[in-house]
Write a protein that binds this DNA or RNA. Sequence first.
DNA 1: TTGAAAGCGCTAACAA
DNA 2: TTGTTAGCGCTTTCAA
Lengths: 342, 342
Amino acid sequence: MPDQKITINDIARLSGVSKRTVSRVINNSPKVGAATKAKVTEVIAQYNYVPDKQARGLASSRSYLLGLVYDNPDALFIDDAQRGILSVCSQQGYELVVHPCRYKSPDFQQNVLNFVRRSKLDGVIVLPPASEVDALGEVLTEQEIPFVRLVSGTNEVAENFIMSDDRAAAAEVAQFLVDLGHRQIALMTGPDNYRSSKERQLGFIEAIKERGLKLPKELVVSGNNDYHTAIKKGLDLLKQNPRPSAIFCNNDEMAAGVLKAAHELAIKVPEALSVCGFDDNLLASRIIPELTTIKRPVSEMGKYAARKLIAKIEKNNPDAVQQKCLVRPELVVRDSTGLYSD
Amino acid sequence: MPDQKITINDIARLSGVSKRTVSRVINNSPKVGAATKAKVTEVIAQYNYVPDKQARGLASSRSYLLGLVYDNPDALFIDDAQRGILSVCSQQGYELVVHPCRYKSPDFQQNVLNFVRRSKLDGVIVLPPASEVDALGEVLTEQEIPFVRLVSGTNEVAENFIMSDDRAAAAEVAQFLVDLGHRQIALMTGPDNYRSSKERQLGFIEAIKERGLKLPKELVVSGNNDYHTAIKKGLDLLKQNPRPSAIFCNNDEMAAGVLKAAHELAIKVPEALSVCGFDDNLLASRIIPELTTIKRPVSEMGKYAARKLIAKIEKNNPDAVQQKCLVRPELVVRDSTGLYSD
DNA sequence: TTGAAAGCGCTAACAA
DNA sequence: TTGTTAGCGCTTTCAA
């Protein structure tokens, strides 16, 4: 059982140095003699001493607390990201404070600023779609609050972003469906204002056209990532004549909605219709038929974000700050897609 | 834009009182004259002053940080609980630090203790199944760390628990299935060591027997809340002759597995088989057929937990500490259950 | 490379 | 009811 009450003073006394020197050892200052350092380190270990975060924070205006800002209905995404972030945090001595919020609210930026200020957070990680609000990035930069944003894209400032190449992934879906023989391929987009929707849409459309196919207006339906809306739009789409033989949905929720619509119309999947989602949600592998979809390495992105953010905070690793972090989501083929058959 | 640097000293000076008095106002001390209090409050508001948490913490050995301890694969449950807790936290001036862990690990208690100690957390909320580890409760009590545990049960110490009457809910399922005319009703249990499994099992079996039915061994299969295992066990169960006409699963994941098994055997749900889950996961309303299940008011439980925990920490509301918090999950009838037909 | 002293912003005794 | 004086445990000037 560790003693709860030992302080830097005890360690200083016990190792026969000044408390300033102990402080240097704790903070890995290079200006400590090897012998001194060894001695102090030993005593620290022996007494299981842990520096007090509040005191450190008060003295150095740091908190060793990171904030996680999000406004995402997808609990699974958040949980994944959170776990990735935490795996890095805990080994680096940081804790994670969570903060769901409303990114569409007029006081969004102020709300996040208050959050940071309340607990003197050392920095924040922002998840999509809240991460897509550029105004927040500007405010944080202005206030010199370190931050990292997770977004869909490939060409953001390396210092502030962890990127996911959703465009390439969506292109891969297009190619996959074309290779299966589909020619009438529909797209159900996500909310217009989401970067992720735009990237996926662009990648998909581009790839379709590159392969000499067309994507007429009636095959592009605008969804909003919502299940129930997707059912309705899916029904409309599938009642068209001729109807598409494959549909790519901006997320798994909507793919589930389309599956539901197909079921209502007694259209068999994948025999008569191929459906592809995006996310690889829990849903994707539980639904019947299991969903072909795109899996983003969310937990990895969380790890990258935490590493970059900590590097920004501690300013001791410029390479990690400047390194471009771009992940490539991958296609997971399951049972909701199949060869085109007439 | 609020000024970032005003301290208690500024407020004291500006309102013409001592800093001690400002402190009293901040902490709602009763020993402040009404006029003084009004004046100070006004100045605080005017300058948008926010007391420094670290300094407060250092001086009072408090942190205004609550911890959330969990080891639960169900991200949706965690997210729900988290949102409930946060809604109370934020309005009471607390932040929430998250801590996933392994409750089966031999150093689980020590791990949680370290977590609390590292950031001087004021208290912790423990989610099931980690919350079911009594040894953790004992250690926390011993170390005088305020905590609240969320569990399935009805008769726990009110001070330390938020309870969910899973037993009654499971009994309701049994009654519901019997009322639909089912006589051969099977049960797929959860992990043996979970309180939630035990409670649900007890409630279900009791209710079945009360209605004069039997639950022979071959109709009770031991699951582990896992989807893939449930498929396998579901196949075994459904290949029996005679086979059950209804199955109650300990959670939605397993109900989804049973649905999958039924699908593989071409058994129609709900025409030839009724399936009922527990949780009301995202899954439940996305799967085809939509799942009849039990919905726990998880977010509400989170709110109760946060209120109770803060009351314990602040010791200013004994009633809230002693109040028994027992919630009753409710049956949500959807499409996976139907009248028994021969 | 090391140490002494002065705070960080707040609360907790103790007086008044 | 209010103010004065010490710290909480650490880091950061500065000097040695």
